[in-house]
Simulated scan of single mutants.
Amino acid sequence: MEALNIILFLGAILGTIAVIMNQAKKARDLFGFGLVMNWTFVLVVLSLGTLFFGFLEYSTATDARYSSGSIENGVVLFATSAITAAGAGFLNVKRSTVRFGVWFTFLQVIAAIGIIVPLIMIFSYFRSKSIMPQMFR
């Protein structure tokens, strides 16, 4: 059963990559803008970054040491994330049709997660690898 789960997981990843590449080609051919080499992709990445820091800030609100202002800061970062994501969606809709613009913004979010998460994991792996020898001295 574990082999089937791995095959389904890899199939879902490959299927998502195929859909993203197909829609990126469609956007480039029909509307003249790319998936990653695009200002809206930068807005989506900024939106995900502010959302991540908003979650971090909001999660520290339960700790008594950091409770002053953490909830307000988290809410502001959530709002900033929503505004930048809506701005990216608006720009995509403005340059194409409504349906394709919203769909393309969703695909940009998926692509940004697919790019950002592995980079964070690689960075943390090498960072922890360089710190570990110093821990045992």
Rank of each mutant, 00 (worst) to 15 (best):
A18V: 11
A86E: 10
N38V: 08
F31A: 05
F106W: 14
N73T: 12
K25C: 13
R95S: 05
L10Y: 07
G101E: 10
R65F: 04
T80N: 07
G114K: 02
I13P: 05
N92D: 02
V44H: 00
E72K: 11
G49H: 12
F53I: 01
I116N: 04
S124P: 10
L56S: 08
S124G: 11
G32H: 01
V98E: 13
T40D: 00
F104H: 03
F52M: 14
L4Q: 10
M121T: 14
A3I: 07
I6M: 15
V109E: 04
R65W: 06
Y66T: 09
F55I: 14
F104T: 00
G34T: 06
A24D: 09
S130C: 06
I17M: 15
F52A: 15
D29L: 13
S81H: 05
L119C: 05
R137V: 14
G114Y: 00
L107F: 05
P133M: 00
R99H: 07
S124I: 10
S130K: 06
T105C: 04
T50N: 08
A111Y: 06
A64N: 14
P133K: 02
S68Y: 02
P118Y: 03
S70F: 08
K129N: 09
S67C: 12
G11T: 08
Q23V: 09
L30V: 11
V75I: 09
T84F: 05
G11E: 06
S96W: 06
G69I: 13
S128V: 13
F123H: 04
R137L: 15
A61W: 03
Y58C: 05
L30P: 05
V75Y: 04
V98L: 12
A112H: 01
A24E: 09
A111K: 11
L4E: 10
V98I: 12
